[in-house]
Computed example of a mutant assay.
Amino acid sequence: MTGFAAALLYALAWSVARLPWPVLRRLADGVARLSTALDGREARVAHRNLELVRPDLDHAARAALAREILRTTSRQAFETLRLWTRPAARNLADIVEVRGEVIFDAALREPRGLIVAAPHMGNWELLNQWLAAKTPLAILYRPPESAIGEGFLRRVRANAGGHVEQVRAEAAGVRSLLKRLQKGGVVGILPDQQPKAGDGEFAPFFGKQALTMTLLGRLAARSGARVLFAWCERVPGSSPPRFILHVEAAPEGIGDADPQRAVAALNAGVEAIARRDFAQYQWTYKRYTLRPAGSGEENPYLDLY
Results as ranks from 00 to 15, higher is better:
1 M>E: 13
3 G>I: 13
3 G>K: 14
6 A>R: 00
6 A>F: 02
9 L>I: 06
16 V>M: 10
17 A>V: 06
17 A>Q: 05
18 R>G: 08
18 R>V: 03
21 W>G: 05
21 W>K: 06
21 W>Q: 03
23 V>T: 07
27 L>W: 09
27 L>C: 13
28 A>T: 08
28 A>S: 15
33 R>Q: 14
35 S>M: 14
35 S>G: 14
40 G>I: 09
44 R>L: 07
46 A>H: 05
47 H>N: 15
47 H>A: 15
51 E>W: 08
51 E>H: 12
52 L>S: 12
52 L>K: 12
53 V>N: 08
53 V>Q: 09
55 P>L: 10
56 D>H: 11
57 L>D: 08
63 A>W: 05
67 R>L: 14
67 R>V: 11
71 R>Q: 12
78 F>Q: 02
79 E>R: 13
80 T>W: 01
83 L>K: 10
83 L>W: 10
84 W>I: 10
86 R>D: 04
89 A>F: 08
91 N>L: 12
93 A>G: 04
98 V>K: 06
103 I>N: 08
104 F>G: 02
110 E>M: 09
110 E>H: 08
111 P>H: 03
116 V>W: 00
117 A>N: 00
118 A>I: 15
125 E>S: 06
126 L>C: 06
126 L>T: 08
131 L>G: 01
132 A>K: 00
132 A>F: 02
132 A>N: 05
137 L>P: 00
138 A>M: 11
142 R>A: 09
143 P>W: 01
145 E>C: 14
148 I>G: 03
153 L>S: 05
154 R>W: 12
155 R>M: 15
155 R>P: 10
156 V>F: 01
158 A>P: 04
165 E>D: 09
165 E>R: 06
165 E>S: 08
166 Q>W: 14
169 A>H: 07
170 E>W: 09
171 A>T: 06
171 A>M: 03
175 R>C: 10
175 R>M: 14
177 L>R: 02
179 K>H: 03
183 K>A: 15
184 G>R: 01
185 G>K: 01
188 G>N: 02
193 Q>I: 07
196 K>F: 11
197 A>R: 13
197 A>Q: 12
198 G>L: 11
203 A>W: 03
203 A>M: 12
206 F>N: 01
208 K>H: 15
212 T>F: 02
216 L>V: 04
216 L>A: 03
217 G>Y: 00
217 G>L: 02
218 R>L: 04
219 L>V: 11
221 A>D: 15
222 R>K: 11
223 S>Q: 13
228 L>K: 00
230 A>E: 00
232 C>K: 00
236 P>T: 10
242 R>P: 05
242 R>S: 10
243 F>W: 05
245 L>D: 02
250 A>L: 08
252 E>G: 11
253 G>V: 00
255 G>S: 11
257 A>Q: 11
258 D>I: 05
260 Q>P: 05
262 A>L: 01
265 A>Y: 00
268 A>T: 10
268 A>G: 13
272 A>S: 11
273 I>N: 00
279 A>K: 02
280 Q>H: 07
284 T>K: 07
284 T>L: 11
286 K>S: 01
287 R>H: 04
290 L>K: 04
292 P>S: 09
292 P>M: 09
295 S>T: 02
296 G>W: 01
297 E>T: 04
299 N>D: 09
301 Y>P: 01
302 L>V: 07
302 L>F: 01
302 L>D: 09
302 L>H: 03
304 L>V: 07
